[in-house]
């Protein structure tokens, strides 16, 4: 049986790097602090571009660079943004030994690349975004909310970014 959240997964195509950033920025504009945004997708699928847009929407002034080696970067915009990259993490325990939970259960906005590696540690209510590399310039992006707070965020994003309903994900 479909849960109510399935109706609020959305699915669209980004046709350019600029569009991916713009959509990330729309989401960033809506953030209120305390959101957890999980990003999944192969290398080069656009996760970091999305976060760069998101930072713009949060009015982060500094340039956002990939935290692949630092694992966690912190930025100050309308809310504190923790940009986390779990690419180099192979076991959940390694991430927890970096204090991952303090960020995930804190007050800022957490956005996590390679989130599938730490899925078990995520708060129940989060937004899960998956990026698929279709061709050189096209990316399919799906977004699914898993709880009330992010469910409302996703609805607001849908309204703001597309100004009309988007095809829902088939179950």
């Amino acid at each position: 049986m479909a849960s109510i959240f399935d109706q609020h997964a959305i699915d669209f195509i980004s046709h350019s790097e600029a569009q991916t950033r713009r959509l990330g920025a729309r989401l960033g504009e809506l953030l209120q602090g305390g959101e957890v945004i999980a990003l999944q997708g192969a290398l080069g699928s656009g996760k970091t571009r999305w976060v760069q847009g998101l930072g713009q929407g949060l009015q982060v002034q500094e340039p956002i660079t990939s935290p692949t080696f630092t694992l966690i970067n912190e930025y100050h915009g309308r809310h504190t943004l923790y940009h986390i990259d779990m690419y180099r993490i192979t076991r959940l325990a390694e991430a927890l030994d970096l204090g991952l939970e303090d960020y995930l259960y804190g007050e800022g906005v957490c956005v996590i690349e390679w989130a599938e590696r730490v899925a078990a540690a995520l708060p129940e209510d989060h937004l899960w975004i998956t990026f698929y590399h279709l061709d050189e310039t096209k990316r399919r992006i799906t977004m699914r909310a898993t709880g009330d707070h992010h469910f409302k965020l996703l609805k607001d994003f849908q309204r703001l970014a597309f100004a009309m309903p988007v095809r829902h994900l088939p179950q």
């Binding site: 959940l92 927890l96 939970e101 995930l104 078990a120 708060p123 129940e124 209510d125």
Partner: peptide
């Protein structure tokens, strides 16, 4: 452990 995060919180 707290670390696993499956606390059943937020219900």
């Amino acid at each position: 452990p707290l670390k696993v995060g499956e606390s059943g919180a937020g219900q």
